[in-house]
Design a binder for these strands. Structure first.
Lengths: 374, 374
DNA sequence: CTGAAAGCGCTTACAG
DNA sequence: CTGAAAGCGCTTACAG
């Protein structure tokens, strides 16, 4: 009969009931050290009778391991982060780890507080999409405290951590190349291009070294711009700065305005590339206001970190980040490092998938030419 | 100068450096008991110099409080649960709590393991959407171990817990009433109606006591059927069992088949009510296959626990659960109980919102009549 | 207001 | 293979 008392039985009580020392009871219950089969049976019986439940706090205090991963995301409500968390959670469960999740709201101070809390809770490792560009002191502290960190989506330079990102440059390059091949020569790009770069777009376009390793530290939307530029240069098309729209803030309202301006300009683009889901939403609002059909009047290719399914449902080609895999890969890297601290740091690059409706290839779906804007 | 050593300083080292006892250092750092201003200053300086970071494991072990909430959801990737988690996370942060999140995949065994893990980690309380109908032993154990539980979305009967749910019956009743008022007399309903009821639909319809308090323990889709029934009875319409479709599984594929059958039956309904987002997806696939317009040929009202925005974007009226508020309310209830264990248990019922595009009212948007099915 | 001592529930050397 | 003792990093009575 399992005892359902209010306070949980301890190893000492189990030991007393089994007639052994607490060290021995600990060995069989904690599954370490040696113990004879007879003793094991007695202890387990006593534990079951008392409804013994191990206290992981005490174990963590003594072993220095809590079997807990701390995660910092921008906003758990965003489909991208939710999916990443799913991937993390699956791998963590298999490894017997718990996951503490915190939202940073992409806010520096909240991120710092979150990391602090997680370190105080003695997490074994941290998986973070950091909002910091220059001052990642809190992450340095974590590393210094021997708490391994895995970065994903965005990478802060100069930290000794593993990382997982999507190959933004190459997947954008090949997708834009397909648009060009389909007959588009004037392709607009709408991207946040917010943080992480001091340059204005013009000097970025003029000066960026496409072969530099620093590209990995650019924020995703800048990397996507890079892929856009590479595709144009490969095709011998000089990119028109008028077609490159920096929305600067992560807001569909701002994107809508920029898109309206882009679509009604003289010599308007025949196709649009949006660097993320919020930008896409802005474009859809703009085309709806202008009564333009998509696809048809305008071809749209959407790099989506939000809910790409809704775009695909509308016949729009979307580049879907493997968000679930990002999380799983991050957690795998972390668990690997927890198992063996001496591994060299790993920078894992995942390929995004191009997703289309009815399996129509990108270059088929895209059409050159569009009707006049009213 | 902050020391960045690999192992963290303890209260004992801070005390030594400050020239006080560890008890005193603990008092000022832990913000409890008395200490003179001079001592406080010395201790704080020493702590800063050593880069002291409190170990919450040790504190938790001794106080019995970890400042951690455990949450069990079906799937963090679902927009409904993600939003609930956002609400929980916000309230938890304000209260200085961390949140450990686990996915049950609506699987009994995984849910049991998750709760077990959370209890071993000594969470202060649990917020759970349980998949269990009859055997919530794991939740009983939690309550017995003085770990307060808050249930949401679905409620298991017979547990001494707080709970937060949406008022499924009344919001469905009034929405269906609006459909009836708009001229629909044959309204189809597509609902999972899976777990939690032994009855078949016919005997449920015949026997259910609408005024019974047990209604709160029905699963959401059964409650929504109840609202559907109430609206019909209030309007003096005898519900046609042919129009009530039990999909039984939570699958859009199954919903699509059922919807196809419903829409092509003799005397087909002029309007459809779908009890959740997966059912809605199935209906949209079916109407698309039949080349029916929505709204127009068919009026659709969707009770959505998934991403209602995409339905609204298509001009469909949706009933949106206040998922964010569900989470916040759940966390608030929990924190309240943690502060004062003797409160009576609370069953909080939130009203869902009816969301429409362009503020068109439900009864305007719904139109009677539909074209023939090919 | 401060300190010495005990203890939270475990695990870890170290003897036997 | 088992037990007595020490200790993880804190907090809590209890004296002073």
């Amino acid at each position: 009969m399992i005892q359902r008392s209010s306070k949980n039985a301890t190893i000492i009580e189990v030991a007393r009931r089994a007639g052994v020392s607490s060290a021995t009871a600990g060995r069989v219950l904690g599954d370490y050290g040696y113990s004879s089969p007879e003793v094991q049976e007695k202890v387990r019986a006593a534990a079951a009778a008392l409804g013994y439940r191990p206290n992981r706090l005490a174990k963590g205090l003594i072993t220095g391991k809590t079997q807990t991963i701390g995660v910092v995301v921008g906003d758990i409500e965003s489909p991208f982060y939710a999916s990443v968390l799913r991937g993390i959670g699956d791998v963590a469960r298999r490894g017997g780890f718990g996951v503490i999740v915190t939202n940073s709201d992409e806010n520096a101070e909240l991120e710092r507080e979150a990391v602090q809390l997680l370190l105080e809770k003695q997490v074994d490792g941290l998986i973070v999409s950091s909002t910091f560009a220059d001052q990642p002191d809190h992450l340095r502290e974590a590393v210094a405290a021997r708490c391994p960190v895995v970065q994903f989506d965005r990478i802060v330079a100069g930290l000794e951590t593993d990382s997982v990102v999507v190959d933004n440059v190459s997947v954008t390059r090949s997708s834009i190349a397909a648009m060009i091949e389909a007959g588009h020569s004037r392709i607009g790009i709408l991207a946040e291009l917010g943080p992480g770069q001091r340059d204005d777009v013009g000097s970025f376009v003029a000066n960026v070294d496409l072969s530099s390793a620093d590209v990995r530290y650019h924020h995703p939307s800048w990397q996507r711009l890079l892929g856009y530029l590479e595709a144009h240069r490969a095709a011998g098309i000089e990119p028109d700065l008028q077609l490159i729209r920096r929305v600067a803030v992560y807001s569909s309202e701002a994107a809508r305005k920029e898109a309206l301006d882009l679509l009604t300009m003289r010599n308007a683009p025949s196709a649009l590339f949006t660097a993320d889901g919020v930008m896409s939403t802005g474009v859809l609002e703009a085309t709806s206001a202008l009564k333009l059909a998509i696809p048809g009047d305008v071809s749209l290719l959407c790099f989506d970190d939000l809910d790409w399914m809704q775009f695909v449902a509308q016949g729009i080609t979307a580049i879907a980040q493997p968000a679930h895999l990002i999380g799983a890969a991050g957690a795998e890297l972390l668990l690997k490092r927890l198992a063996e601290a001496t591994l060299p740091f790993e920078h894992r690059v995942l390929a995004a998938r191009v997703v289309e409706r009815n399996s129509i290839a990108v270059h088929v779906q895209l059409q050159a030419g569009r009707s006049e804007v009213p």
